[in-house]
């Protein structure tokens, strides 16, 4: 496979996430679309890591390919922490307003 195929797939998934964030108003769905965008970037990092391992530059810098996958691991860690806090914020929002429409969020300014 060529790296362009992976870039195209990753861009498509990222755009699906963007369109979901822009069109849906359910706060949980918006949050899930952010997860899709994170996963698209993770996939791109792993593809580039494998591209580096297959290239001639891997002989000079042998640990670079592993470094990229460690970055993906840390992105997953941060995403898990982010989801726990974000979902508790959504639960608190639902408890106060009895709705998870993101357009209700502008009432927080009063």
């Amino acid at each position: 496979m060529d790296i362009k195929a992976y870039i195209a797939l990753s861009l498509t998934l990222f755009t699906i996430g963007i369109v979901g964030v822009l069109t849906r108003r359910n706060a949980i769905i918006v949050f899930m679309c952010v997860e899709v965008m994170l996963n698209a970037v993770n996939l791109l990092l792993v593809a580039f890591s494998n591209m580096h391992a297959a290239s001639n530059a891997a002989k000079a810098l042998p640990t670079f390919a592993s470094d990229a996958q460690i970055f993906v691991f840390f992105i997953m860690i941060v995403a898990a922490a982010e989801v726990s806090v974000g979902l508790s914020i959504i639960v608190m929002l639902y408890r106060n307003t009895h709705s998870i429409d993101v357009n209700f969020l502008n009432r927080l300014k009063n």
Partner: peptide
């Protein structure tokens, strides 16, 4: 064209990643 080799190297194995 930059090929992405499938099953190339050992960068993604648990042993390598655990060491790093």
């Amino acid at each position: 064209a930059h090929p992405v080799m499938v099953a190339a190297g050992n960068a993604g194995l648990i042993k390598t990643l655990g060491k790093v």
